[in-house]
Amino acid sequence: MSEKAAVRLSVNGQDYALEVEPRRTLVDAIREDCGQTGTHIGCEHGVCGACTVLVDGEPVRSCLMFAVQADGKAIRTVEGLADGDNLHPLQRAFMEHHGLQCGFCTPGFLMLAAGVLEREPDISDEDLLDVLSSNLCRCTGYQNIIKAVRAAAAEMRAR
């Protein structure tokens, strides 16, 4: 397993030239090799969604993808969501609607919602519920997450 492969990752617009084992997961590369620890590991089997990042604009479970599979792709993580000190509408809405408690699942929910709302700004409440049910949260009971994402969606549409 020690044969390493050269991989170029673009994380939030910054390029990283890495040498990784083929078995190295994308989330480990993002966290350990690129130092972006905002993306969290919750289950490593693709169910909880805490590790959700955007790969070429699509929400992806970064625990189920190898770093070598992301070679040359544009990755966005929670660290890239705000514009400097200006928080993304989703980040603000999560704060305003008490959409987080411990905050561990939050980056995954934010990236999941960001990816979906960019692709489908007019998503129906029913479809949004389906999307949000793909990630797990153990603190909030989801209601405030749903309210936050709906509020952010409305704000993003109004822009």
Binding site: I41, E79, A82, M95, G103
Partner: peptide, 19 residues
């Protein structure tokens, strides 16, 4: 009132054990 804890947590600046 809004929580004091939230900003680092929504910006990926939290510091959990694995970090």
């Amino acid at each position: 009132v809004p929580r004091l804890e939230d900003r680092p947590l929504v910006t990926g600046r939290g510091r959990f054990a694995a970090d």
